[in-house]
């Protein structure tokens, strides 16, 4: 197994102040980063097929949010979802196998990068349709409420999704039924090429929560501690039956939208400015300054994360290719 352990959330204080949680968070951040750098490289060398959407630069959101969740809590994810999968505890080898079109991949090669789900860790699936997972998260939360369970559901989505009808319908249903769902908007400033200034007339997406009657907050999405704190508050509220919260995490994707992106819609200066705010660099600096971890410990965690990704590539590469023979029999689940 090369998957990382679910993050350890401290009862009090911030993630960065405690050695176990800081270590786990750093491992999550770096695993996401190295995984995506690796697939970027495999793609560039023609060894990986299809398309993919990288979340490099946004790792603190997935990490900070999932740190506040239990294994029994659920998430729905997006087309830019590798980070969510990894932070919730997915197996890197099965993820890599999926991207390499192998039979042992999470989707047996049928879904690829945009469709990874992991029942074991409560990941109800990434989604190729912008905002597609948001009503599904509301429904999963409705089921928790109906069954009297105190699990919560997190729905990840981008800024672009908040202009879709599905976002608004799900927000409203979650509000009127007080559903235990946390809407996490990763505002990376662009829906493909369309900036938030172009696509909406409000300053912050969190304002949209107000029109549905529940709290909305905006946090620094490149700060693991800030994301964790906001999520923890929202999770407590949800578990107490008080309903949903919208958390807007301000962040940035260093890479283009997908493989076709030539970055014509944003400036080098803007990209460089955000790279200087890299969530991983900031987290490392913070834990060093606070004395939570020393450099040798950080290096060891980085090496461990690198090894995990390397062995995921090796193991996945050796797996059999996905099998066309089972396609027709896989469309419907067989009745019991």
């Amino acid at each position: 197994m090369t998957s990382i352990n679910p993050l350890l959330a401290p009862d009090t204080g911030s993630i960065s102040q405690h050695e176990p949680s800081a270590s786990a968070a750093l491992e999550s951040l770096l695993s996401i980063r190295y995984f995506e750098e690796a697939v970027d490289g495999l793609f560039a060398r023609g060894l990986m097929h299809g398309t993919m959407h990288l979340s490099i630069g946004q790792e603190a959101v997935a990490t900070g949010v999932c740190a506040a969740l239990l294994k029994t809590d659920f998430i729905t994810s997006t087309h830019r979802g590798h980070g969510h999968c990894i932070a919730k505890g997915a197996d890197l080898t099965r993820m890599m196998a999926e991207l390499l079109a192998k039979q042992t991949g999470y989707c047996r090669g049928r879904g690829g990068s945009m469709h990874i789900a992991d029942v074991e860790t409560g990941n109800l699936g990434a989604n190729g349709i912008v905002a597609g997972g948001i009503p599904i998260a509301a429904g999963a939360a409705l089921a928790q409420k109906m069954k009297g369970k105190d699990n919560v559901v997190v729905s990840f989505f981008g800024d672009g999704a908040t202009n879709e009808g599905a976002f608004h319908e799900a927000m409203n249903l979650a509000a009127i039924w007080d559903l235990p769902v946390i809407f996490v908007c990763e505002n990376n400033k662009y829906g493909m090429s369309g900036s938030t200034e172009f696509s909406m007339k409000i300053d912050q997406i969190s304002e949209r929560a107000g029109s549905y009657g529940f709290p909305g907050v905006t946090v620094d999405g490149n700060d693991v501690d800030a994301v964790f704190e906001a999520t923890k508050t929202a999770v407590e509220r949800a578990r107490e039956g008080k309903g949903p919260t919208l958390i807007e995490c301000m962040t940035y994707r260093h890479k283009g939208h997908s493989k076709s992106d030539k970055n014509l819609y944003r400036t080098k200066e803007e990209i460089e400015g955000w790279k200087a705010q890299d969530p991983i660099g900031r987290f490392e600096q913070k834990i060093l300054e606070q004395g939570t971890l020393i450099q040798e410990q950080i290096d060891a965690i980085a090496e461990k994360a690198r090894d995990s990704v390397r062995s995921a590539i090796t193991e996945a590469s050796e797996a059999p290719d996905s099998d066309p023979a089972e396609l027709l029999s896989s469309v419907y689940r067989e009745a019991k």
Partner: peptide, 9 residues
């Protein structure tokens, strides 16, 4: 969408 999510779990 809510029905899909509820059915999934």
């Amino acid at each position: 969408g809510a029905a899909v999510g509820a059915a999934l779990v």
